[in-house]
């Protein structure tokens, strides 16, 4: 087993373990911290795939911006451990069974595939900023501009929703 393989399995284990803890943790702040660890493990996966740009953007956008937003909201609303009411055990059990069944179906359909080839990078600089920028600003120029409109509308919507009503 080479160092790449062991790194892949180690990062996969860390990501699965921490995402389980995200779902299972009682305190929402702990969930956010475990989610940040999960995102760092995902960044490690991106770097293993030689997609450095996506990895760095993952750290900046997810671990940097989105998680800070989550933490701010949790601290603003002042949650404690005891405030959450829990679903009945039957509903929890049914949810876990449903997820497990979806997993079984997907894995079973995966097993019917042929023995898969390893991920081989034919073109090593595919994930670098130069190449991605060329593709983004040639083939995907229109979606890129539409995303800016999406951000504008999201910004207006967030400000409008979070504003205090004056009545």
């Amino acid at each position: 087993m080479t160092i790449t393989q062991s790194l892949f399995y180690f990062l996969a284990f860390v990501a699965i373990f921490c995402s389980l803890l995200v779902v299972l943790a009682k305190n929402p702040v702990h969930s956010v911290l475990y989610l940040i660890i999960t995102f760092f493990a995902f960044t490690g996966h991106y770097i293993l795939l030689n997609a450095q740009f996506v990895g760095i953007v993952n750290i900046i956008v997810y671990a940097g911006a989105i998680m800070v937003l989550f933490l701010f909201v949790i601290m603003l609303l002042n949650f404690n451990e005891g405030t959450e009411t829990h679903k009945p055990n039957l509903v929890k059990f049914a949810g876990a069974i449903t997820g497990g069944l979806v997993l079984v179906v997907l894995v079973a359909s995966l097993q019917t595939l042929q023995q898969s080839n390893p991920v081989k990078l034919n073109n090593a600089d595919i994930g670098l900023v130069k190449n991605l920028g060329k593709v983004l600003f040639n083939e995907f120029l229109l979606p890129f501009e539409v995303v800016s409109i999406l951000f504008l509308s999201a910004m207006v919507g967030a400000v409008l929703l979070a504003r205090k009503e004056n009545n």
Binding site: Q5, F8, A15, S19, L20, G99, G100, L110
Partner: peptide
């Protein structure tokens, strides 16, 4: 260095994370 992990393992790993999100 990146040539050794099968694509099936990536699919399996992503599936597990997705199912944890569903649950």
């Amino acid at each position: 260095a990146i040539t050794l992990v099968p694509i099936n393992h990536y699919i399996l790993f992503s599936t597990i994370i997705f199912i944890i999100g569903i649950i």
